[in-house]
């Protein structure tokens, strides 16, 4: 092991998927909208569809922002763990390759926060 320890030990992964009662942690971030100061953490069933993710999770999380109502969802650019991807809205998170502690970031072209300030 790379940690310098007087004796070896078996590290306990505190946030292992198994600790979340069948659910998984998913991080969401609407880039250029710092009103929400940091990406958000959600605990979600892997069977939830991506469409449900937008309606049931992303919408209440971010709807407070004046830009939110103006989002053209067909133009949204998604990234999954840093890689561009196109989600299948009717497929589950699992089928979209979203696993425990996946980070989903999205940008909304033309909508870059209040007055384009990233906020």
């Amino acid at each position: 092991m790379s940690v310098q320890s007087i004796r070896p030990f078996e590290p306990v992964v505190k946030d292992a998927a198994a600790n979340f009662h069948g659910l998984q942690v998913v991080y969401l971030c609407w880039d250029k909208h710092l009103m929400f100061y940091a990406p958000i953490a959600k605990m979600l069933p892997p069977s939830m569809t991506f469409g449900e993710l937008i309606d049931a999770e992303i919408t209440p999380a971010y709807s407070r922002h004046p830009d939110f109502a103006r989002i053209d969802w067909s133009a949204v650019e998604w990234r999954k763990d840093g890689e561009a991807f196109t989600p299948a809205l009717d497929k589950s998170l699992a089928d979209n390759g979203i696993t425990h502690k996946t980070a989903i970031h999205f940008t909304t072209p033309g909508l870059d926060g209040i007055g384009g300030s990233g906020f």
């Binding site: 991080y27 971030c29 009103m35 929400f36 100061y37 940091a38 990406p39 958000i40 953490a41 959600k42 209440p60 999380a61 407070r64 980070a103």
Partner: peptide
């Protein structure tokens, strides 16, 4: 304004 979300 309150951010209703738990942060990463």
């Amino acid at each position: 304004f309150v951010n209703p979300n738990l942060p990463q």
